[in-house]
Structure formats: structure tokens, C-alpha cells
């Protein structure tokens, strides 16, 4: 059974949990995959892995926002508490081949969580990417994830942060993330762009990326739908011809652009 080894409150209502299972070392999860976390009696919810960077004996890291019944219960669990874990499930981020393409990560809000394992991998020199640019948009400076890690990230690669609202203490961008994205120098021909955030934010980012000339085949995004069984059997995460838990959550934009434009799907 899994136990909470560490618990860190990112900001009120959002916590990062480190989970470890006694007697088990191998954790074969890939960046972009998700687990189903069960809080006793309250329910189960799909949460992406926000760490570690690769299959290892390190604890599983999950960042959870308290929203529904199950996430509220998970966020309340103290260090040492046990919880159920099923997974990992789904297809993660495309693994970079040896071509050393420049990597562009665009994250919004909680969407930074499933991308953090890739950032870790880059920092450890294990990601065959020529360069890394990270664009991170959030609601307010106080509602950014991993705030204590951001300064170090900014020294290791190009990190652009933007918030919708801020008072005068904030030193980063104020505005939507599409603004700095629009004016940034992105190697549009070669870059591999990975997107995760609210669907509406991803739509606007894709508009900008396509306008800049990034091919649809170079854009990957992580979709959110209600995932209940996580194994393609319950029908909850239907999205056009796809079952998000089975075929995603990460999709290549080229393969899903038709479905991405249909409202209420």
C-alpha cells in the first residue's frame, strides 16, 4: 500500500504529495502518464505524475488541486497516511529521439505538473534536447506551482512566466501567456512544442503557434476528460474517436486538430 512520504502545500488548495510503497522499488512511469489516486471512501481521481523524471526508486510525485470530493480528501491527507494508487496509465509525452530538437514547453496553471518530469530530465542532462524554453502562465503569482524551483530553472534555461493579475511586487509578465509566446524567438521549423493547461488556454496558444509557423505535427498537448476507469472500459473520457485514458492523454495536435475544434465534444 502507498503511503504519503512528504506533503507540500504549493498554495492554499493545491498540494504536492510524494508517495512511496514499502518493498517496491521499480516505478515504471513515463513523463505525461497519470495514476488513479484513491482516498479512502471518498473516491478516485486521475492525477498526472509531476515527478520523478524517469523510472526510478524515487517516490511518485503528484500535484493535486482541491476541487471535487476525491481531490479534497486527497489534499487533506497528512504525511504517513495511506492511499490507493493504480497506474501508470496512458500515453505520455513523445520521447525525443537523437535529433536534439529544441524543446518548447507551454504550461498553464496546474498544467505545469505533468511537464515537470521532462524539465527535471533536461536539468539532469538526460533529455536529448538542444535547448529548452518554458512558458508558464498562472492566475496570480501566489498561484504558481513550484515557486521555490522557478529561480533555479530560470538560470538553466529560458523561463518566461506570466500571470493574469498581479500587484506591484511581481516582477514577471502580467498578461496572458500568448503575449510573450507571440513575441518570443521560437525555432519554429525544428522545435517540438508540448502544451498542457486549460483547454481554452491551449487553443489560444495553438493559434499563436500555428500563426508563427509551427507545424501541427510538432505540437503535442495533454487533454483533460473525466477519467474514471483509466483503462478504456467505462466510456467517461470519450472524445470523438478517442478514449482519452487509452489513446491519450497526450496527443499530437495533427492527429486531433479536427476534434479539438468541435465544441461540446
Amino acid at each position: 500500500m502507498w503511503r504519503i512520504e512528504r506533503r507540500h502545500e504549493e498554495f492554499p488548495g493545491t498540494v504536492t504529495l510524494a508517495l512511496r510503497r514499502e518493498g517496491h522499488l521499480e516505478v515504471p512511469a513515463l513523463p505525461g502518464q497519470f495514476n488513479m489516486l484513491y482516498a479512502f471512501g471518498a473516491g478516485e481521481v486521475a492525477i498526472s505524475l509531476s515527478g520523478p523524471s524517469a523510472p526510478s526508486s524515487d517516490p511518485l510525485i503528484h500535484t493535486i488541486k482541491s476541487q471535487g470530493f476525491a481531490t479534497q480528501a486527497l489534499c487533506r491527507l497528512p504525511v504517513g497516511a495511506q492511499l490507493g494508487v493504480r497506474g501508470p496509465f496512458g500515453h505520455g509525452w513523445p520521447m525525443l529521439d537523437g535529433s536534439h530538437r529544441p524543446l518548447v514547453i507551454i504550461a498553464g496553471g496546474l498544467g505545469l505538473a505533468p511537464l515537470r518530469p521532462l524539465i527535471y530530465r533536461f536539468l539532469q542532462g538526460q533529455l536529448p534536447a538542444r535547448s529548452l524554453q518554458v512558458f508558464y502562465g498562472a492566475r496570480r503569482p501566489q498561484e504558481m506551482l513550484y515557486r521555490e524551483e522557478l529561480p533555479a530553472w530560470g538560470k538553466s534555461f529560458e523561463l518566461v512566466t506570466s500571470v493574469d493579475h498581479a500587484d506591484t511586487n511581481w516582477n514577471g509578465h502580467v498578461g496572458v501567456i500568448t503575449d510573450p509566446l507571440r513575441v518570443s524567438a521560437v525555432n519554429v521549423k525544428e522545435a517540438l512544442v508540448l502544451l498542457c493547461g486549460p483547454e481554452i488556454m491551449m487553443r489560444f496558444c495553438i493559434q499563436v503557434l500555428r500563426h508563427k509557423g509551427v507545424p501541427a505535427s510538432s505540437i503535442y498537448l495533454s487533454m483533460e476528460r473525466n477519467m474514471k476507469c483509466a483503462i478504456g472500459l467505462c466510456g467517461h473520457c470519450q472524445w470523438g474517436p478517442h478514449l482519452v485514458c487509452r489513446d491519450g492523454p497526450v496527443f499530437c495536435y495533427q492527429d486531433v486538430c479536427k476534434w479539438f475544434q468541435i465544441n461540446g465534444l
Binding site: 502562465g137 500568448t178 493547461g197
Partner: peptide
């Protein structure tokens, strides 16, 4: 126009609990 679009997206509060 770009500023107007950006302001509208900001208004949507896309990272908020109930956009």
C-alpha cells in the same frame, strides 16, 4: 486587436476554479 484579445482571455480567468 491583440491587446483586446489578450484582455478578453484574461477576463475568462482560465486558471480559475470556474472559468
Amino acid at each position: 486587436t491583440e491587446r483586446l484579445q489578450a484582455a478578453r482571455i484574461q477576463l475568462l480567468d482560465v486558471y480559475g476554479p470556474h472559468p
